Simulated scan of single mutants.
Amino acid sequence: MAARDYGQYCNVTRALELVGERWALLIVRDLLVGPRRYGELAAGLPRIPSNILAARLKELQEAGVIRRAPRSRVVLYELTPYGRELEPVVLALGAWGFKAMGEPREEQIVTPDSMTIALRTAFRPRVAADLPATAYAARFGSAELLIRVDGPALDVTRGDGPVDLAFAAGPDIRGLISGELAPDRAIATGVVEVLRGPGDLLGRFANTFHLAA
Rank of each mutant, 00 (worst) to 15 (best):
G197T: 08
R120Y: 14
L165T: 05
V191C: 02
A138K: 08
C10Y: 11
R71S: 04
P112S: 14
L91Q: 03
N207A: 14
T157Q: 05
D155V: 15
L53V: 12
A213M: 13
L146Q: 05
D172E: 09
R67M: 09
L181Y: 05
E78Q: 09
R148W: 06
Y6I: 04
V90G: 03
P88A: 04
L31V: 12
V90I: 11
D184H: 12
S142L: 15
R68K: 09
L176V: 08
L154K: 05
Q108N: 12
Y6A: 02
A3P: 01
V191P: 00
R68G: 04
A122R: 05
L57H: 07
K99A: 14
L201Y: 10
L195P: 10
T116H: 08
D5T: 03
Q8S: 03
T157N: 03
E103G: 13
R73M: 07
R158Y: 11
G7N: 02
D130A: 15
L45K: 11
K99V: 12
E59R: 09
V110L: 13
F140E: 00
V192E: 01
L202H: 03
V75N: 01
Q61N: 05
V194G: 01
R185A: 07
A54R: 15
V89Y: 14
L16M: 07
V156S: 00
V75H: 04
V74L: 07
R29G: 07
N51M: 06
F209Y: 04
I66S: 04
F167W: 01
G161R: 07
P132W: 13
A118W: 13
L18F: 11
E106S: 08
A212L: 13
D30F: 13
F167T: 01
T80N: 00
R174Y: 14
L60G: 07
E40V: 13
D200N: 15
P104Q: 11
C10G: 15
